[in-house]
Structures are given as C-alpha cells and as structure tokens.
Design a protein around this nucleic acid. Structure first.
Lengths: 337, 337
DNA sequence: CTGTTAGCGCTTTCAG
DNA sequence: CTGAAAGCGCTAACAG
C-alpha cells in the first residue's frame, strides 16, 4: 500500500498537520523539521492523495478543458500549449471531447466537472444555456474562441482585421472577382465566420466591387468541404479569379479541387487561407497567421492568475496579433485586370 | 453551495446510503424510492463529488494519458478516440503532455497520477526506469506505440509489414535506386523506425538490390526534417528515383523539397509515405494507411475491460491492419528501369 | 429493502 | 512553531 501522511509523520516523529504544512511550503515549520519531513517523504515515496486533499481543502488543482475536437490541428495545438503552462504550475488537465453531439449533451446535463475543477478552459462556444451552466460552476472561465462574453476571459484574434488583410491582399493584386469559402455551418454560435464574412463584404465595398452571392460558398471548415466549395465556385458562369478561404483546411481542399480541374495556382486563380496551419508552409499557401499555441498558453496563464488572486482580476479580453504570410498561392489575375 | 448527498437524502426522507446506492444503480433499492431519489437529485442539481467518492470508494473513475505531443495529428487523433470511449463509460481523462524534457522528468519523479487514476494509457515509449515507475502504479496499463512489453496491453500495427508493402510497391514499379527518409532520431525507444528500416533492407535484399548507405537519411519525423532529408538525397551523386518516407509528415516535406527543385512527382521521382495523415489525400500522397483513431479506441476499450474484470484479463497484444493507399505520387521510373 | 456506523487521507481551526 | 480535534462528502460493511 502506498504511504500515507501518517506514515511520514510517524517516521519523523511529528504530527500529520506538520507534515501537511511542511510539504505544501506553508509557513510555521522550522527548517530543521521541514527538511527531515521532505526527506522522509521522498524515502517513503509519499505523494498526497489528490482526492483527500481536494475533499479537505476544497481545491482540486485541476483545470477542465472542453473542446469540440482534439485531433484537429487548431485544438490540439491550443491544448498542447495550455497543458504546458498548467502542469508547470502544478495543475492537472481534465479533458472533455464534446464533439459528438451526445457527449456534449451529456456533459452539460451532468456537468461532471462540478466539484472537480478549479477552473475551466472552453475551446468551444457555448450557447446561452450552456454558458449559464458553465458560469454556475462558480470557477474562473476562459476561452480561446468566439466573442467576448460575460463571465469569460477570452483570448482571441481580431478576425475582422485578419480577414480584411486577406481580402485586401487580393484586391491589391488587382482581383475584382473574389470568391469566399465560408465556414458558416460549423459549430453553433461561432463568431469567426460572421466576422470574417463581414470583413470580406467591407473590403469589397471599399474597393467599389459589387458583391455576388454566387461567389460565397460554404466549406464547413473541412478539407472536404473546401474542395466541394471550390468545385462549386468553378461552376459559376463567371468564376472568380481569386478565393478567400476562411480556414487553411478549406483552402487546402480548394487547392485540391483546382488541381483536379487542371487549373494552375496562382496563375489561373489565387487562393488565400486563414490560420497558418502547420502544413500550410508545405503547400505554399498564402494565409493569415494567428498565434495558436500562444492563445492556449495565454488563456491558461490568465486562468492561473485568477486562481491566485481570487476576485481581484476581472475576466478580460486579450487580442493577439495576426499577420499576412505571403507564399505561393496568390498573384495578379491573368489578364492584368 | 452545491447540494450534497445529505440534502438529497433529506429531501426524499431516506438515508445517505440509500441515495448513494440508488444513484449508482446498485441493487437493493425499491423502484419507487429510487425514482424519487433520482428526481430529487435532478431538482437539486446534485452531482456526487468525485473527490469524496474516490476517497471513500477507492476508485477515481479517471484514466491518465501521457503523450509526447498533443498537437500532432497522430497523437491528437488517438487521444480524441480514446476520450470518446472513456467518457461514454463514465471515465474522465487526465492528460499529461510529456513532450518537454522537464515535464517528462517531473512526471516520473513525482508520479502525480499516483492515487489519481484507475488506469493509464501511454502514447509514448517509456524507458526501463519509466516503465518500472508506471508498473508500480498498480493499475492497468496500455499503449498504442512500441513493441509488446511486460505489463502493458499494446495496440499497434505491423510496422514491418507496412514498410515492406511500401517499398515493394516501389520495387514493383521498377525502381532500383530507392532512398529512405528515416525517423531514427525521434523519441527514445521508438521501435517503428527500426522495424521500418529493417523492412526496407529486407525488400531491397529480396529484390536483389544492393543497398547504398548514402540513400538513407534522417528526417526526424517532421515536415522540416523530411524536406532537409530530401534535399540531401538529391545531392547524392546518383540520386534515387523513388523514396520511402517513414511518415507522411516527412513525405510532405520531401514533396516540398522536390517542388522547390522543380522536380515533378511522380514523373521525376516517386514518393511513398506512412500513416495516411488526414492531409495526405489533399496532396495526393501514396502511403500506408494505419487505423489511428481505432487504435486509440481499442486501447481505451481494453483498459476498460481490465477495469471491469480485475485480474481476469492478462495484458495482451492487438495488431491492427494496414493497407497501401495508391494515390498520385508513385509511378514507374522515367527511363523504364 | 433500508438505516447506522465507521472510516477513506487529508486540511484546518484552535489551543498550547 | 507544533499538536489535537473536527470534519470535507462519500461508500461500505453490518445490522435490522
């Protein structure tokens, strides 16, 4: 059986309370006693039972993370970075994959994190009821997606500015027929598609380009969807000379569709993506880069802050920088204009 | 304050034990009482405190997962699938990212999962000492990587057979100068690179092709590394007409290098990868597909089995099928032979 | 079928 | 600076 706090206490000849204080670095233990306790604990291979500490102390030293996917690059990268920060601070990370519809339903119905986590990081956008449920947990909340919302610390990017930069880049190259592969039908309450679309419309307007609804197609945030969307765009009577894809994954699907249609990129058509996916460099995709890992790390850090100074820090809003990364998929349109 | 078991007990007018039994579906509670308890619990929004249950019952209903990366496709996909299976069974998943050297050291020094998990899934290959530490936890252990090892249930693929299929494919197309981008310097104790290399050598031998050490280059399991390796292979006096990359990520790096060198794939040179990464289809990469998500799900399932029938099931070894997926990066060598 | 009685292994007052 | 006592909220025998 694993050693308990009493075993250590006995070995050193002190009380359990002293061992507890000593091992957690609390004041009020003489250096001599403390070092003897630390040594004995190491000898016995003693580690405090998290269940017991949580029960007695009220803190779990665990942060919950809920995500709509784990395998996808964006989420995996955020998760990875958040874990680094949390574990360095002595916190464990409880992961919930709420992608499957029933998993999500079950999670919000039972709220299994209740009494299990000290804070929660959401990688998905909760709807009204879900948001309420999360706030009812009474723990600090953070998210790396979506618009600022009450009760949440949000770390994000300026989607509008990013999308504007992407579309402006195409306009500056001389394109007038600019299509968009959107991500509208993605997860509910996602604000990115809305913001990015508005930016697209704004830039067209400011450039004096009439927008054509036929040039806006849904790509579902997936490679497959992007491919389908591009195929659809090519079937339009007067197809675009350039396309803004709201995510790199959709952009890659578009590139695939173009290859299958024997169209050359960027000679025949330009493509710009959004995200700077790890493989975008490989395919030479021009895109808007956002600091994904940094967003995860920062969100985790802000959560830890709130844990350290309870009440002191209000949930805030951090905007991380984006930038246009020029690679090989954009160029001026074929016939000058 | 959140409702406790006593609040529910009081509301229904029964004892806490009865509530406990009723809510966990234990036998020995009349249907009438049980339904009233369930109702009251729902009303009060009661959820049992995991800390308290663990402490009292000895089980944590938590499975730990240790991984060398989370953001990379392979690991994220395994994790995703494992989480689905575990959460459906009522288990939570505690994630540890042991990529950073110090994180790994700290983990094995403190073994924070001790008394915290009922089972553990390793996505990395522990060395001798680490393996011992894990076994000392006294919980079921599973892994999706590496060779069979005592104490672990391993779910994997036949690396040798997969690599053989890849190289044989190139040989059958008529290639005689076949290079390999290996993953030798990856994580320690990784068996895949070794097995895949042996397969490469075996197939060359069986085809009567002398192997040339200059044609074996390390690609570090990364896109960057693959690109570097391919560049190096092109600099060899008599460069290969085909390349076997031990992972799709390295293969993609190779494709990028070839594009930069203005070489056509597969006309000038053939490339075959290994894994069937989610984006391999996008770039049209011919590769060896392995069921990644299924490995994660299966490992989780086997862990649950062992949890259900303690002692009954011995740790075993499951091999999942692989298959050659033909796409657009392989063809016969240019000049017939 | 249900209630009572003990803890699980810690942390936390409160004394000394 | 240290110890004793009292739970944290639940589960697990053991009685009835």
């Amino acid at each position: 059986m694993a050693a308990s706090i009493n075993d250590v206490a006995q070995a050193v000849g002190v009380s359990a309370s002293t061992v507890s204080r000593a091992l957690r670095g609390k004041a009020g233990v003489s250096d001599d006693v403390r070092s003897r306790i630390v040594e004995a604990a190491a000898d016995l291979g003693y580690v405090a039972s998290r269940s017991a500490s949580s029960l007695a102390g009220g803190r779990t030293f665990t942060v919950g993370v809920i995500a709509p996917y784990v395998g996808r690059w964006f989420f995996g990268t955020v998760l990875d970075a958040a874990e680094d920060v949390l574990s360095a601070a002595g916190y464990d990370l409880l992961l919930y994959n709420l992608g499957p519809r029933e998993a999500r339903k079950r999670f919000f119905a039972e709220l299994p994190v209740r009494k299990r986590v000290d804070a929660l990081l959401s990688l998905l956008i909760p709807d009204e009821a879900e948001g309420l449920a999360l706030r009812s947990l009474g723990v600090p909340l953070a998210t790396t997606v979506g618009a600022p919302r009450p009760g949440f610390t949000v770390v994000g990017i300026d989607d509008r500015a990013g999308a504007q930069a992407a579309v402006r880049h195409l306009v500056n190259l001389g394109h007038r027929r600019i299509g968009m592969i959107a991500g509208a039908s993605g997860p509910l309450h996602w604000t990115a598609p809305v913001e990015r679309r508005r930016a697209y419309l704004d830039v067209l307007a400011e450039a004096g380009i009439a927008c054509d609804p036929a040039l806006e197609v849904d790509g579902d945030y997936t490679v497959q969807g992007g491919q389908r969307a591009m195929t659809q765009l090519l079937a339009v009577p007067n197809p675009p000379t350039a396309v803004f894809a709201q995510s790199d994954e959709m952009a890659m699907g578009a590139l695939r569709a173009l290859r299958l249609h024997r169209l050359k990129v960027p000679e025949d058509i330009s493509v710009v993506g959004f995200d700077d996916h790890e493989l975008s460099e490989v395919v030479g995709l021009t895109t808007i880069a956002q600091p994904v890992a940094e967003q995860g790390a920062e969100a985790a850090r802000l959560l830890l802050n709130q844990l350290d100074e309870p009440g002191a820090v209000r949930p805030g809003h951090v905007t991380m920088p984006i930038r246009l990364v020029l690679r090989d998929t954009t160029a001026p349109p074929r016939n000058g204009r």
